[in-house]
Every structure is written in structure tokens, then in C-alpha cells.
Amino acid sequence: MSAFSNIAISLGAMQLAKKIPFEDPQILLFLRIGYVLAQLVILYAYYHVSNVIKQKNDQTVLKYVEQPAPFSQEEPKLVVTTVRDYDLLETSKLLRGAYMGIGTMAIFHIYLHYNQPLFIQTLMGLKNLYSAKPVSIHLLGKAAEGELKRPFQSPGMFGAAGNLQTDAAAIAEAEKRVGSKKDD
């Protein structure tokens, strides 16, 4: 659903952006102000989510098995963390993504003089903020179940399942591997 909505919003925004006269300095100023305000809202929301996570301080243990990259010689890795640390890590990833987007947009807009991406990225940034799982749980108050169950599964290629296993058998097998390596 998220990938489809990203494509739909991008295509819709591109069609709408074709009708905006970006050469008009007044419109360009409003577009820049809108983009900066949207980015400030996004950054503030992620920082606020981080603070909410720290205040909740959920020390519930979270175990899962992270699969290696395809065609890699590595073994699956057992991850043992807390809900607090996991949510902070996920929020940190979102924050880094926002910073990368701002940097990329600065290059496109300031150095390459592309104006249309400002409009599209304003909409996409706000859409991504709304659909971010830590934001859904900690700001919007949704229950951490179903699609929001930790660890968050990211869809693989062509909608395949993610690369995290939470079943007891996979965790037990990974714990045995870790235990046998400690004995060596």
C-alpha cells in the first residue's frame, strides 16, 4: 500500500506541478517557504517522537533474526534489544532519511536550479511522516499490532516478506549458533 501511495502521490504531484508557473518569483518564494516549513515540521515530529520514546522507556525485550543480504556468505544474525532502543533506532533512520532528502533537495534546487522537486518533495515528505511507523505508534496513538508490530517488516522485492524473522524456531536456532560460537 505504501509503495503504491508513494507512486500515486508522486505522479499526481508531477501533473499538478506542470500547472505551476515556477518562473514567477512570488510563487517560487511561497514554494520555498512551504518546503522549509514542511521540513521543519518533519524534523520536529521525529525529534518529538524520540523524546516520547525516551519518556516511555519501554524496556520490553525484543528478539528477532536478521537475514543477511541475498547471495551473502554471512549467517543470519540474532538481534536482542529493547522496544525503546529499537524504536529510537528506527526513528534515527527516519531522521537520517529526512536530512539526506534536505541535502539532495539543496543540490537540486540551489546548484542545478530545479524547482519542481521542491513541490513534490514537500508533499512526499509530509506523506512519509504520516506513514512512518514510530510516528503512527507514538504520536498518532495506534496500537503496535499488525503492520505496526515490532520489529517492523519492510517489504522486499515485489511485495515479498521482509528480512526479519520473529518466530520462536528461528530465534532458538540463532541462539544455538551464538552459543556454539562462544564455546569455541
Rank of each mutant, 00 (worst) to 15 (best):
T166N: 08
L123V: 04
S136L: 15
D184N: 06
T166W: 05
N57F: 03
M105Q: 15
A13I: 04
L11C: 10
L78I: 11
A69Y: 13
F158I: 12
I53C: 08
L43S: 12
E75T: 14
Y46C: 01
A45F: 02
Y130D: 07
Y47I: 10
A13D: 06
G179M: 09
Y99S: 04
S10W: 07
F4C: 11
H109Q: 05
L126E: 01
L126T: 03
I53F: 04
N115R: 13
D85I: 04
T60W: 08
P151E: 07
S5K: 09
F30P: 00
L40Q: 07
A160E: 13
K182F: 06
G97M: 05
V65M: 05
L94F: 03
L112W: 15
D184V: 08
S131N: 12
S72Q: 08
Q165W: 05
T166R: 08
I42P: 00
I20P: 05
V83F: 10
Y114L: 15
P134Y: 01
I171M: 10
D183R: 07
I33Q: 06
K149R: 15
A132G: 04
K149C: 02
S2A: 14
G159E: 03
A45C: 09
A69M: 13
K181P: 00
I9L: 14
Q165T: 02
M1R: 10
A13L: 11
I107W: 07
P25I: 07
I53H: 01
K142F: 07
A160S: 14
A143I: 05
A144N: 08
D58F: 09
A160I: 08
K133W: 00
H109V: 11
A174E: 06
A170V: 12
Q73I: 10
I20R: 02
E74W: 09
Q73R: 15
V79W: 04
F22L: 10
S131R: 05
A172K: 14
L78D: 01
L95E: 03
V83W: 03
F152M: 11
Q67G: 01
D184H: 09
K93C: 08
S180E: 15
H113Q: 14
V61G: 04
I137S: 00
P68L: 13
S92I: 02
G34H: 02
L140C: 04
Q67I: 13
L89C: 06
I27Q: 08
